[in-house]
Every structure is written in structure tokens, then in C-alpha cells.
Design a protein around this nucleic acid. Structure first.
Length: 269
DNA sequence: CTGTTGACAGGCGAGTACGG
DNA sequence: CCGTACTCGCCTGTCAACAG
């Protein structure tokens, strides 16, 4: 492991008890690229077309110096990029515009706060109505939330006590990003945990997950005794075996659709 | 106009780390 | 210590830019 960041030359620090070493430079271009890539990633703001190569060019050319700059990009600056024509530029701008309405949970995940993954971000978004309520939250309020302990709470408090982060959030507000919580519209599946294995015909994994969550259900990443349903699509993996071993109910895509349709008749036709 | 190339979305499972 | 959430690496198909 190098002692200095190969990208910006800042010191590389490894926290006691942690496996990874991190560059602590505040103006490291590699960090900026990664921050933006994460913000745009599928589970965060889902900006299709903003991947490694494009982000790299935008940062290298100085077109983007922070997350908020994404929202001031225009056709001209984009078509100047390598291998980027007008069609690509228009598609990307359309995606960027759509990302304004993703909601508080995805936005929080997109910020890249340490220890806040998709699930923790959802927990925070369902406890607080908007970003202002969250930035003002105390450690006690945070640790009351299921799944949030001391380490995660400290990480959140640290993030929002950093003035530059608050300024960035203000800029994003001005750019019209929605930072309001969207709570589940129903509680028909409340307390039920679903795990998916294999691929589904009709839905993308995340889409199916959104459906379950909109009905108040939860998505698990592994099969455990607490899993209620394993939905087995085409080419199911080892989770199916695990489900049989633990005696968890296994359903196929058709049964899954019926189950959702029962609870939410307007969704499945 | 067509074939090639590059980039990205979508998908999966194993490994790692946190919360309780 | 167990259950859960998240990270990471890998693979495949699709789409758009580019070259001829």
C-alpha cells in the first residue's frame, strides 16, 4: 500500500481496525470522480449514461468540480467530449433532469456518507420528513432507529457538521433536487421479507424490490430464518437451496405477481 | 450504410463488516 | 456470535459513436 495517494499525493491513512486505506486529500480528483460516479449510480440517483468514462472526462476538463455542477451541464459542454454526439448528450441531460425527483432515500445514499448504504438511507428517510430535519438530528434520535448504531450515527453527524457538505446540499436544493421523504403508500406487506434469486422476466430486480417496498415489505439480500418468501426466477442461485434447507416458502414469478396484484390491484395487469 | 468498438445497464454470488 | 447490509469482481447483452 503506498504512503501517498498516487493521484493527488496526499497522505494515505488507514484507520485502526479497518481494512481499507484512504486518501485524506480534500481536492483529490480520483475521489471527486468516485463521488460523482456513486451519486449517479443505479442505486443512488440512477443517472443512466453517467458512468466511469464520462465522469472522468467531465472532471479532467474541469466541467464538474462537485456534485452540484452536474446540474449545470448543457448540450455544448457535453458534445465537446470524446465519442459523444448530440444524441448521447440529449439522453444524458434527460436522465440528469429526471434524477431531481428520486427522493430523499436515494439522495442520502448518493451523498456517499460512510456506513450509509441503500438500506440505512431508507431507514433515515422513513424516520425524517426532509433533509433539514435530518441535518438537525441528534445522535440519540439517530440511534433510536432500527439498524443505526453508534458508528453509523457518528458518521451521519460528522458528515452534516462539515460546512462544505452543508453548502453542497444548499446548492443542490437550488438546482431543484427533491430532498423530501416518500413513505410507503401501503402497509399490506408490512413485516414480510422477500429475497430474490435468479432473473425475472417481467421486472428488473430493483423494480420488483420497489414494488415490495411500496407495500411496506422488506428486501433481504440473503435467505435466513426470518425470510418470508424466496422468489425464484430463471436460473436461480444458491439462495434457492438455502431456502429449501431452512424451510422458507419458495414462489415463482407468476405467484409473486399474483401476490402483488392481490395487495395492489392497480400495479399488475 | 454497415461493421467495429467502447461504454454502460443489469445481473449474480462470495466475502466483509456492522448492529444487536 | 448470528443475522443482515453492503462491497466487490465478474459476466453478458444492448446501444450509440465512429471508421471505412
Amino acid at each position: 500500500m503506498p504512503e501517498r495517494c498516487p493521484e493527488c499525493g496526499s497522505k494515505v491513512v488507514r484507520e485502526e481496525g479497518e481494512a481499507v486505506s484512504r486518501c485524506i486529500g480534500s481536492n483529490c480528483p480520483a475521489q471527486l470522480k468516485e463521488t460523482i460516479r456513486h451519486y449517479a449510480s443505479r442505486n443512488a440517483m440512477d443517472i443512466e449514461g453517467l458512468g466511469d468514462a464520462v465522469v472522468s472526462q467531465l472532471v479532467d476538463r474541469g466541467l464538474v468540480k462537485g456534485i452540484a455542477d452536474i446540474y449545470s451541464l448543457d448540450i455544448d459542454s457535453l458534445t465537446g467530449l470524446e465519442r459523444y454526439g448530440e444524441k448521447s448528450a440529449r439522453n444524458l441531460l434527460e436522465q440528469i433532469a429526471r434524477s431531481r425527483e428520486r427522493g430523499l432515500d436515494r439522495f442520502l445514499y448518493g451523498l456517499g456518507i460512510r456506513h450509509i448504504g441503500r438500506a440505512a438511507a431508507e431507514s433515515l428517510a422513513s424516520r425524517f420528513d426532509d433533509i433539514d430535519e435530518l441535518t438537525g438530528a441528534t445522535k440519540e434520535e439517530l440511534t433510536e432507529i432500527d439498524g443505526i448504531g453508534n458508528i453509523v450515527a457518528d458518521s451521519v453527524i460528522d458528515y452534516f457538521s462539515e460546512q462544505s457538505n452543508i453548502e453542497m446540499i444548499e446548492q443542490l436544493k437550488k438546482a431543484g433536487i427533491s430532498m423530501v421523504s416518500s413513505r410507503p403508500r401501503s402497509s399490506a406487506l408490512s413485516g414480510r421479507t422477500f429475497v430474490f434469486t435468479g432473473s425475472l422476466d417481467e421486472y428488473a430486480r430493483t423494480e420488483a424490490g420497489e414494488l415490495v417496498k411500496s407495500l411496506g415489505g422488506k428486501i433481504g439480500s440473503n435467505v435466513t430464518k426470518k425470510t418470508d418468501f424466496v422468489v425464484a426466477g430463471k436460473a436461480p442461485g444458491s439462495k434457492l437451496e438455502e431456502a429449501r434447507k431452512l424451510g422458507v416458502k419458495v414462489i415463482d414469478e407468476a405467484e409473486f405477481k399474483r401476490l402483488i396484484a392481490e395487495k395492489k390491484p392497480d400495479v399488475v395487469t
